[in-house]
Design a protein around this nucleic acid. Structure first.
Lengths: 279, 279
DNA sequence: CCCGGCGATACCTCAGCGGTATCAATGCGG
DNA sequence: CCGCATTGATACCGCTGAGGTATCGCCGGG
């Protein structure tokens, strides 16, 4: 199977429309039809069911969509990492969620910079759930993730830090002066729903609660008395001053891990990981 | 980058010889030279240094070799899994080391077969260190691995079983009747070296000690008084009767884990994993 | 019943892949 | 120092196959 065929199939499988897929790929529709047909013939597998009004994935087709995306990411990563290796400037790219790492990141970067063999570290702060993709397609070398929110599936990891979580409420809320709260107290506050974060694909789950993209947005909403949240303790430092913070001992522990793709064990990366685990 | 280019590059990088690589690929040498040249031009990266007598990898070239192999495995896995999904017969392929799983495997297969939604499980027993490759290129769906001997890098895992290790000695050896031994006692027995197992690429490390491929071979050698070994307790059941077995409490614990590729979460696989963790 | 939208087919052109023949550089034996 | 063998690069050619345009066949909606 050639990557061209895979790219074509993934485009069609995502659009479920040959015309739009062809447009997205920058080719005409007939060659695309033929390419998919030929792919099906070569694999000996029916990937799509087409009526003249609708295109749908078969069982095998959805397997190829999932596996094909992973394979294309791997090819893209190979290309990108090769280009980067050729520049001669080593340098690592670290990706993490904007605002969620507290002072751990600063400490890590300082400690690593003090190492004798350290190289430049570029930091990318991205929205939730983009990290995985950046790490997978080679744009980033290493990430700081937070269990159980992020998935580390397919990466190697080391645990760095575990912490409890706190409830964040508008100042003046009846619960604001409690010494601690239970999960049950906080998950269903009348008029103060938990926010909804974007999923891997950028869409939001249905349900009540405002859609948020980052911590600043969330803080605003809480201050306005329109939401509440349960966040790792270390977020405290970055909250607005007029928010109430109450520990929630029975909330799941949040573990910060450093994650990297299972290949790519460059010396620089190994050194950064070693530094991180020693913090 | 097309998979054809990657395959060509990997062949040349492994052979370090255009002629032999071309032969292995089943094409003539000139098209191969051109393809590599074109790949280098497209990437804008020098991958190989050629003198007219020798070919060597550049830094970037070895990155592309490593990443390219992984990418090719991913493409191959996509193809294989798609084909398998299309047959309509579900069925899982489980791979593990010949002889090293004791009764755990039997219990797992029995328990899984008793599940209401179970499918056929094909078991592949292979030599050490082939498992990783089978799992990575899609020929297997799930593996039983043994930490710390196997690497789980790039796979998702669940721990199933932890056990201590025992020393295996020829019957009649002076240590045979000891209640237990220390690592220090066993690692350097005069005339009874530890065996050497093959590495990922099938070659053996240098050193003393016989080269072995499986447990039966090893048992023979120990019975002959030419080797000794430290093995997980559960191997006991499969040893020859005339061998002495002595616990080694300070040997590293061996953990049996069930491992699977991070994508491919079929229902059947999820059910098998659930069954395994409940044993 | 006609029209519009969609995927498949027919047919053409040309890029590029692979083959053969050959060159150029280099190490080696005499 | 000179053939000679080895090895990667280049020249040139034929043909496969990727992509384009025009068009067909099918189907649902007005």
């Amino acid at each position: 199977m050639e990557t061209r065929e895979l790219r074509y199939f993934v485009a069609v499988a995502e659009e479920l429309h040959f015309g739009r897929a062809a447009q997205r790929l920058g080719i005409a529709q007939p060659p695309l039809s033929r390419a998919i047909l030929q792919l099906e013939r070569r694999l000996g597998v029916l990937l799509l069911t087409r009526t003249s009004r609708a295109v749908a994935l078969t069982e095998a087709g959805s397997v190829l969509l999932r596996e094909g995306r992973a394979a294309l990411d791997a090819v893209e990563a190979a290309e990108r990492r090769t280009r980067r290796a050729a520049t001669g400037r080593p340098g690592l790219v670290l990706v993490t969620k904007a605002g969620a790492v507290g002072e751990l990141l600063a400490k890590l970067l300082d400690a690593y910079a003090a190492e004798p063999d350290s190289v430049a570290v570029e930091v990318i702060l991205c929205g939730i759930a983009e990290q995985e993709r950046l790490l997978r397609d080679g744009r980033a070398d290493v990430a700081l993730l937070h269990l159980p929110y992020d998935s580390t599936t397919g990466f190697d990891t080391e645990e760095l830090h575990a912490e409890g979580q706190v409830a964040v409420l508008p100042a003046g809320h009846p619960f604001a002066n409690r010494a601690e709260l239970r999960m049950a107290d906080v998950t269903d506050l009348p008029g103060l729903p938990q926010p909804r974060w974007p999923r891997q694909d950028g869409t939001y789950a249905d349900g009540p609660g405002p859609q948020v993209r980052d911590l600043a947005q969330l803080c605003q909403l809480i201050a306005l008395g329109r939401a509440s949240a349960i966040l790792p303790e270390s977020c405290r430092a970055q909250l607005l001053h007029d928010l109430a913070v109450v520990p929630v001992p029975d909330a799941p522990t949040v573990t910060t891990v450093i994650a990297w793709p299972p290949h790519s064990r460059s010396l620089a990366l190994a050194s950064l990981i070693r530094t991180a685990t020693r913090l």
